[in-house]
Computed example of a mutant assay.
Amino acid sequence: MLVLDKISSGYGRAQILRDLSLTVRSGEILCLLGRNGAGKTTTMQTIMGLLPLMSGRIALDGKDIGSLSAHRVPQAGIGYVPQGRRLFTGLSVAQNLEIGLLARHSGPDTLEEVLTLFPRLRERYRQRAETLSGGEQQMLATARALCLRPKALLLDEPTEGLQPSMIEAIRQVIVQMRAAGVAILLVEQRVDAVLSVADRVAFIENGQGGEVIEAETLRQDHSIVERYIGV
Protein backbone atom coordinates (compact mmCIF):
# COMPACT_ATOMS: atom_id res chain seq x y z
CA MET A 1 0.00 0.00 0.00
CA LEU A 2 1.27 3.44 -0.96
CA VAL A 3 0.18 6.28 1.33
CA LEU A 4 0.62 10.03 0.85
CA ASP A 5 -0.28 11.86 4.05
CA LYS A 6 -0.74 15.61 3.68
CA ILE A 7 2.29 16.07 1.43
CA SER A 8 3.44 19.47 0.19
CA SER A 9 6.03 19.93 -2.53
CA GLY A 10 7.13 22.16 -5.37
CA TYR A 11 9.94 23.64 -7.42
CA GLY A 12 12.29 25.90 -5.49
CA ARG A 13 10.16 28.45 -3.71
CA ALA A 14 7.10 27.67 -5.85
CA GLN A 15 4.82 25.38 -3.88
CA ILE A 16 2.64 23.18 -6.10
CA LEU A 17 1.21 20.50 -3.80
CA ARG A 18 -0.61 21.53 -0.64
CA ASP A 19 -1.46 18.90 1.98
CA LEU A 20 -2.30 16.25 -0.62
CA SER A 21 -3.40 12.89 0.76
CA LEU A 22 -3.87 9.69 -1.24
CA THR A 23 -3.93 5.97 -0.56
CA VAL A 24 -3.25 3.41 -3.27
CA ARG A 25 -4.10 -0.08 -2.09
CA SER A 26 -2.20 -3.17 -3.10
CA GLY A 27 -3.91 -4.75 -6.10
CA GLU A 28 -5.64 -1.51 -7.07
CA ILE A 29 -5.42 0.97 -9.93
CA LEU A 30 -5.98 4.50 -8.66
CA CYS A 31 -6.09 7.16 -11.37
CA LEU A 32 -5.05 10.71 -10.56
CA LEU A 33 -7.13 13.00 -12.74
CA GLY A 34 -7.05 16.77 -13.14
CA ARG A 35 -6.45 19.64 -15.53
CA ASN A 36 -3.01 20.45 -16.93
CA GLY A 37 -0.93 22.06 -14.22
CA ALA A 38 -3.01 20.62 -11.38
CA GLY A 39 -0.01 18.85 -9.85
CA LYS A 40 -0.24 15.29 -11.19
CA THR A 41 3.35 14.95 -12.43
CA THR A 42 4.60 16.88 -9.40
CA THR A 43 2.96 14.22 -7.22
CA MET A 44 4.79 11.45 -9.06
CA GLN A 45 8.14 13.24 -8.91
CA THR A 46 7.74 13.92 -5.21
CA ILE A 47 7.06 10.25 -4.50
CA MET A 48 10.19 9.34 -6.45
CA GLY A 49 12.36 11.80 -4.52
CA LEU A 50 12.96 13.93 -7.60
CA LEU A 51 11.36 16.93 -5.88
CA PRO A 52 11.80 17.79 -2.20
CA LEU A 53 9.08 16.84 0.26
CA MET A 54 8.34 20.09 2.09
CA SER A 55 6.02 18.50 4.62
CA GLY A 56 3.90 15.41 5.15
CA ARG A 57 4.70 11.72 4.90
CA ILE A 58 5.08 9.15 2.13
CA ALA A 59 4.96 5.47 3.13
CA LEU A 60 5.14 2.17 1.27
CA ASP A 61 3.76 -0.81 3.17
CA GLY A 62 4.10 1.17 6.39
CA LYS A 63 7.73 2.20 5.85
CA ASP A 64 8.53 5.90 5.54
CA ILE A 65 10.19 6.59 2.18
CA GLY A 66 9.75 10.36 2.03
CA SER A 67 13.27 11.01 3.25
CA LEU A 68 14.98 8.67 0.77
CA SER A 69 17.21 10.05 -1.96
CA ALA A 70 16.00 9.59 -5.52
CA HIS A 71 18.26 6.62 -6.29
CA ARG A 72 17.03 4.74 -3.22
CA VAL A 73 13.29 5.06 -3.91
CA PRO A 74 13.33 2.40 -6.68
CA GLN A 75 15.33 0.14 -4.34
CA ALA A 76 12.48 0.47 -1.83
CA GLY A 77 10.11 -1.03 -4.41
CA ILE A 78 8.58 1.78 -6.47
CA GLY A 79 8.69 1.58 -10.26
CA TYR A 80 8.24 4.77 -12.27
CA VAL A 81 7.32 5.20 -15.94
CA PRO A 82 7.68 8.96 -16.50
CA GLN A 83 6.01 11.02 -19.16
CA GLY A 84 8.39 11.06 -22.12
CA ARG A 85 9.80 7.62 -21.14
CA ARG A 86 13.38 8.81 -20.49
CA LEU A 87 15.06 5.76 -21.92
CA PHE A 88 18.78 5.44 -22.56
CA THR A 89 18.19 5.75 -26.28
CA GLY A 90 21.75 4.93 -27.31
CA LEU A 91 21.64 1.64 -25.40
CA SER A 92 19.97 -1.57 -26.51
CA VAL A 93 16.71 -2.96 -25.19
CA ALA A 94 18.76 -5.51 -23.25
CA GLN A 95 20.93 -2.83 -21.65
CA ASN A 96 17.95 -0.68 -20.64
CA LEU A 97 16.36 -3.69 -18.97
CA GLU A 98 19.64 -4.58 -17.25
CA ILE A 99 19.63 -1.14 -15.60
CA GLY A 100 16.18 -1.92 -14.19
CA LEU A 101 17.32 -5.32 -12.96
CA LEU A 102 20.38 -3.88 -11.20
CA ALA A 103 18.33 -1.38 -9.19
CA ARG A 104 16.91 -4.15 -6.99
CA HIS A 105 19.35 -6.92 -7.81
CA SER A 106 16.74 -8.85 -9.80
CA GLY A 107 17.87 -11.86 -11.82
CA PRO A 108 17.20 -13.78 -15.03
CA ASP A 109 13.85 -15.09 -13.78
CA THR A 110 12.55 -11.54 -13.52
CA LEU A 111 13.89 -10.70 -16.97
CA GLU A 112 12.13 -13.72 -18.46
CA GLU A 113 8.83 -12.74 -16.82
CA VAL A 114 9.10 -9.22 -18.21
CA LEU A 115 9.92 -10.42 -21.73
CA THR A 116 6.95 -12.78 -21.55
CA LEU A 117 4.73 -9.79 -20.81
CA PHE A 118 6.27 -7.88 -23.73
CA PRO A 119 7.13 -10.38 -26.49
CA ARG A 120 7.81 -7.50 -28.89
CA LEU A 121 10.81 -6.55 -26.77
CA ARG A 122 12.19 -10.07 -27.05
CA GLU A 123 12.13 -9.64 -30.81
CA ARG A 124 13.92 -6.28 -30.50
CA TYR A 125 16.25 -7.35 -27.71
CA ARG A 126 19.55 -6.29 -29.35
CA GLN A 127 18.23 -3.14 -31.01
CA ARG A 128 19.04 0.31 -29.70
CA ALA A 129 16.11 1.97 -27.97
CA GLU A 130 16.24 4.91 -30.39
CA THR A 131 15.31 2.57 -33.27
CA LEU A 132 12.05 1.45 -31.65
CA SER A 133 8.63 2.85 -32.47
CA GLY A 134 6.93 5.09 -29.93
CA GLY A 135 4.77 2.24 -28.71
CA GLU A 136 7.76 -0.08 -28.37
CA GLN A 137 9.63 2.57 -26.42
CA GLN A 138 6.68 2.86 -24.05
CA MET A 139 6.72 -0.91 -23.63
CA LEU A 140 10.44 -0.73 -22.84
CA ALA A 141 9.98 2.03 -20.27
CA THR A 142 7.24 -0.01 -18.59
CA ALA A 143 9.26 -3.23 -18.76
CA ARG A 144 12.28 -1.49 -17.21
CA ALA A 145 10.12 -0.40 -14.27
CA LEU A 146 8.76 -3.93 -13.87
CA CYS A 147 12.32 -5.29 -13.67
CA LEU A 148 12.31 -3.80 -10.16
CA ARG A 149 9.58 -6.23 -9.10
CA PRO A 150 7.78 -3.16 -7.74
CA LYS A 151 5.33 -3.12 -4.87
CA ALA A 152 3.96 0.12 -6.33
CA LEU A 153 4.02 1.30 -9.94
CA LEU A 154 3.65 4.94 -11.06
CA LEU A 155 2.62 5.56 -14.68
CA ASP A 156 2.53 9.10 -16.07
CA GLU A 157 0.50 9.37 -19.32
CA PRO A 158 1.45 5.86 -20.55
CA THR A 159 -0.85 5.92 -23.61
CA GLU A 160 0.03 9.40 -24.88
CA GLY A 161 0.49 9.40 -28.67
CA LEU A 162 0.18 5.64 -29.08
CA GLN A 163 -1.85 3.70 -31.62
CA PRO A 164 -4.78 1.62 -30.31
CA SER A 165 -3.00 -1.76 -30.50
CA MET A 166 -0.12 -0.49 -28.35
CA ILE A 167 -2.54 1.11 -25.89
CA GLU A 168 -4.33 -2.21 -25.51
CA ALA A 169 -1.06 -4.13 -25.01
CA ILE A 170 0.03 -1.78 -22.23
CA ARG A 171 -3.45 -1.80 -20.68
CA GLN A 172 -3.36 -5.59 -20.45
CA VAL A 173 -0.02 -5.51 -18.66
CA ILE A 174 -1.29 -2.91 -16.18
CA VAL A 175 -4.29 -5.11 -15.42
CA GLN A 176 -1.99 -8.11 -14.90
CA MET A 177 0.13 -6.12 -12.45
CA ARG A 178 -2.99 -5.24 -10.49
CA ALA A 179 -3.90 -8.93 -10.34
CA ALA A 180 -0.40 -9.63 -9.00
CA GLY A 181 -1.05 -7.28 -6.08
CA VAL A 182 0.87 -4.21 -7.25
CA ALA A 183 -0.42 -0.81 -6.12
CA ILE A 184 -0.75 1.27 -9.29
CA LEU A 185 -0.98 5.06 -9.46
CA LEU A 186 -1.94 6.14 -12.97
CA VAL A 187 -1.94 9.63 -14.46
CA GLU A 188 -3.98 9.62 -17.67
CA GLN A 189 -5.78 12.40 -19.53
CA ARG A 190 -7.94 10.15 -21.71
CA VAL A 191 -11.10 9.64 -19.68
CA ASP A 192 -12.09 6.54 -21.65
CA ALA A 193 -8.72 4.95 -20.84
CA VAL A 194 -9.13 5.86 -17.17
CA LEU A 195 -12.56 4.33 -16.86
CA SER A 196 -11.50 1.16 -18.70
CA VAL A 197 -8.94 0.18 -16.04
CA ALA A 198 -9.29 2.27 -12.87
CA ASP A 199 -10.79 0.97 -9.63
CA ARG A 200 -10.98 4.44 -8.12
CA VAL A 201 -10.33 7.96 -9.40
CA ALA A 202 -8.76 10.69 -7.27
CA PHE A 203 -9.24 14.25 -8.47
CA ILE A 204 -6.58 16.92 -7.98
CA GLU A 205 -7.07 20.65 -8.42
CA ASN A 206 -4.53 23.43 -7.82
CA GLY A 207 -2.23 21.01 -6.01
CA GLN A 208 -4.89 19.90 -3.56
CA GLY A 209 -6.79 16.64 -3.35
CA GLY A 210 -10.45 16.51 -4.26
CA GLU A 211 -12.96 13.71 -4.23
CA VAL A 212 -11.94 10.06 -4.52
CA ILE A 213 -14.67 8.16 -6.30
CA GLU A 214 -15.26 4.59 -7.42
CA ALA A 215 -14.69 4.31 -11.15
CA GLU A 216 -17.98 2.48 -11.59
CA THR A 217 -19.79 5.56 -10.27
CA LEU A 218 -18.06 7.73 -12.87
CA ARG A 219 -18.91 5.31 -15.67
CA GLN A 220 -22.55 5.90 -14.87
CA ASP A 221 -22.30 9.65 -14.25
CA HIS A 222 -19.72 11.80 -16.09
CA SER A 223 -20.84 15.07 -14.50
CA ILE A 224 -18.17 14.86 -11.79
CA VAL A 225 -15.42 14.42 -14.39
CA GLU A 226 -16.77 17.40 -16.32
CA ARG A 227 -16.66 19.52 -13.18
CA TYR A 228 -12.98 18.79 -12.55
CA ILE A 229 -11.47 18.70 -16.02
CA GLY A 230 -14.12 20.26 -18.24
CA VAL A 231 -14.68 17.45 -20.79
Rank of each mutant, 00 (worst) to 15 (best):
G230V: 13
F203T: 14
G207E: 06
G209I: 12
D221V: 01
I224L: 14
R200Q: 04
D199C: 03
A198I: 04
V225R: 05
Y228F: 03
V231C: 07
L218F: 01
Q208S: 15
E205I: 10
H222W: 09
V201S: 03
Y228N: 06
T217D: 13
E216K: 13
E214C: 05
F203Y: 03
I229V: 12
A202T: 07
V212P: 09
I229H: 00
E226D: 08
G207S: 09
T217C: 07
R200Y: 06
R227I: 11
A202E: 03
R200P: 04
V212F: 11
R200L: 03
A215R: 01
S223Y: 06
R219Q: 07
Q220R: 15
E226V: 00
I229D: 00
E211W: 00
V201E: 01
F203H: 08
E216A: 12
Y228L: 10
V231R: 07
I224Q: 09
I229K: 07
R227V: 04
D199F: 12
G210R: 13
I229G: 00
L218E: 07
I229F: 00
D199S: 01
I213H: 09
R219S: 05
E216F: 06
E214P: 06
F203W: 04
E226M: 00
E211G: 12
G207P: 02
A215K: 02
G209P: 10
D199G: 00
I204G: 05
E216Q: 13
R200F: 02
A198Q: 02
E205V: 11
D221T: 03
G210H: 08
E211A: 14
L218T: 11
E211V: 12
R227C: 03
S223H: 09
R200C: 01
V201T: 06
H222Y: 07
G207L: 11
I213L: 12
E214R: 15
A215H: 05
G230H: 13
E216S: 11
V212L: 12
L218S: 07
Q208R: 15
T217L: 13
H222S: 05
R227F: 07
E216D: 12
G230W: 05
I213Y: 01
A202L: 04
E205C: 12
A198P: 01
Y228G: 03
A198R: 00
D221I: 00
Q220P: 02
T217G: 02
R200N: 02
R219N: 06
S223L: 03
F203A: 10
R219G: 08
F203I: 10
Y228Q: 08
N206Q: 15
I204H: 12
G230A: 13
D221K: 08
F203Q: 10
E216W: 09
H222M: 08
V225H: 05
H222V: 08
V231E: 05
A215M: 04
V231D: 09
D221M: 01
V212K: 11
I229A: 05
E216Y: 07
A202S: 07
S223R: 10
